[in-house]
Design a binder for these strands. Structure first.
Length: 494
RNA sequence: GGGCCCGUAGCUCAGCCAGGCAGAGCGGCGGGCUUUUAACCCGUAGGUCCCGGGUUCGAAUCCCGGCGGGCCCGCCA
């Protein structure tokens, strides 16, 4: 028995014998988006549309089929009694589910009350040699197919398409929000001689022209701050970061961040900016700032309208876990590290130990509603400015929603000599085996030496924000083509 | 990096525990049907049982190794 592809190739051959191009360059008539026909057409009016055939229901002399164009579906019918014999036979012999067609005809309502185009003219626009894997409107079950061939997932499942509509609208509205506040959207290099701005292992690459090993950026931070040094007061960038770390429901090696930097602002200003952004963009994209997010299987209502709860890291420990980490002796901190089997690379450091414990004990578990966690230990934040009244802390906050870290922000460190000394601490850590410690970036320090105004900066994880908006618990659901291992598929050729 | 689970027709899955002819529904193909919408009715084709090795008279089934995937844990400030 011939395979589907073979059968449809045969259809192509027979079309060619009749002098019909299965891949014409353009539709023969003007095309109206199906969306407009569905919204505005009245019975009796003419309509000409184009789309993919997603379902065919044959009743002898009458055939119903569904057309989908840009996410909108419309039913069409071909009646043997009302069209030429050629047109009816053409549809029967040559049109399959998956094909793109152009149709023209008159709009009417069926007995069941569905808006339908009575087709009087039809043109094949593109022959599909493979049909969709499942009927339109259904879900593909196999995750391998969903992620490897996302185009199929989006093609057949409107709910999946909806997630990506939310994603791209979110990015659009973030841009609008930032533009409206006078931020300039800039571009910084993806390929960098020294990576920085986060604690992560980088992807390495090789620049033939320079004969050097370079890196894919792990954050946007250090170059955006150079823009502030250069004299731009408000800048932002939305772009891909690359971290050579493991893949799970909250992490993809390639992910999208928005970072912004604003001169003459501190982390309190940035908190206001952040909550307004998260709430405003939600309302513009979703029409509401109350969303449902699955945590531990159960959907929880999350309210994204500002202001968000604010708590210091130490207070959050006390409030949610009943632990006073602030006054705890080092021995006891180490005991907690053992208890939660947390290993610190680069030697014991109280600040970094506390942050790791926080992630483990408090963040994921308790911070479901939007919460700003403020004032992290200074040693865990080498790019942030020390706290104005607490030298052991940094002016830093993280935003948690749904138990995920959504944003990270500082009053930026702008003292070049302090920055240099923090870089030296990081180098020492790297020497002690911390592969995620910051490399020393002399060029950045030199930029700071030229003077950077007091600045507030923000890093916002776009993928995770979209997870919250779309109400999905896996980052793979919001990344169009998540990273999956390549696989050799057998090509079935006839 | 550790643990658990999964891989059988284009798709969803049964068969595996307890070894003995490789199955169902959907989809495809053929036929019927002029108001259906997961249309319906009749018929029919379709298989590298993920790959390799082992045990056995005999392996989809049991054992070992590998590949791919999912979930959980660790890690990802």
């Amino acid at each position: 028995m011939a395979s589907e592809v073979e059968l449809r190739r045969d259809v192509k051959r027979r079309l060619a014998e009749l002098g019909i191009d299965p891949y014409p360059h353009a539709p023969k008539g003007a095309v109206t988006p199906v969306r407009e026909v569905v919204r505005a057409s009245s019975p009796g009016s003419a309509a000409s549309v184009a789309g993919r055939v997603v379902g065919i229901r044959r009743h002898g002399g009458l055939v119903f089929f569904d057309l989908v164009d840009d996410g909108y579906r419309i039913q069409c019918s071909v009646s043997r009694g009302e069209v030429s014999r050629d047109l009816f036979d053409f549809f029967e012999k040559f049109v399959d589910v998956g094909d793109f067609v152009y149709v023209a005809g008159q709009v009417y309502y069926t007995k069941r009350g569905e808006l339908t185009i009575a087709v009087s003219d039809l043109q094949l626009l593109a022959k599909a040699l493979r049909s969709p894997p499942v009927k339109w409107g259904h879900r593909i079950v196999d995750p391998e197919v969903r992620y490897r061939k996302r185009y199929l997932d989006v093609m057949v499942t409107p709910q999946v398409r909806r997630i990506f509509e939310i994603r791209f609208r979110t990015i659009e509205e973030i841009r609008r929000f930032m533009w409206d506040r006078g931020y300039v959207e800039v571009e910084t290099p993806v390929l960098q001689p020294i990576y920085g701005g986060a604690a992560a292992r980088p992807f390495k690459t090789y620049v033939e022209a320079l004969g050097e090993e370079w890196y894919l950026r792990i954050s946007l931070e250090l170059y955006l701050k150079r823009f502030i040094v250069a004299g731009f007061s408000k800048v932002f960038e939305i772009g891909k970061n690359f971290r050579n770390e493991d893949i799970d429901v909250e992490h993809n090696p390639e992910f999208t961040m928005m970072e912004s930097y604003e001169a003459y602002a501190d982390y309190n200003d940035i908190m206001k900016l952040t909550e307004e952004l998260v709430g405003t963009v939600a309302r513009r994209v979703l029409g509401t700032d109350v969303v449902e997010f699955p945590t531990g299987g159960e959907p929880v209502k999350i309210n994204l309208s500002p202001p968000f709860r604010r708590t210091s890291l130490y207070d959050a420990f006390r409030e949610f876990a009943g632990i006073d980490v602030e006054s705890m002796p080092d021995d006891e901190v180490k005991e907690y590290l053992r208890k939660y089997s947390i290993r610190l690379t680069g030697g014991y450091d109280r600040g970094r130990a506390v942050v790791k414990l926080f992630d483990r004990i408090v963040g994921r578990e308790y911070l479901i509603q939007p919460t700003f966690v403020t004032d992290f230990p200074r040693s865990s934040s080498p790019l942030a400015k020390p706290h104005r009244s607490r030298p052991d802390l940094a002016e830093r906050f993280e935003l948690y929603v749904g138990g995920m870290e959504l944003a990270n922000a500082y009053t930026e460190l702008n003292d070049p000599e302090l920055q240099a000394s923090y870089f030296r601490e990081e180098e020492e850590r790297r020497r002690l085996g911390d592969l995620e410690a910051h490399p020393f970036d002399w060029d950045f320090v030199e930029a700071l030496e030229h003077g950077m105004p007091p600045t507030g900066g923000l890093g916002l994880g776009i993928d995770r924000l979209v997870m919250v908006y779309a109400g999905v618990a896996s980052i793979k659901e919001v990344i169009p083509f998540p990273m999956v291992k390549p696989r050799e598929f057998e090509q079935k050729r006839g």
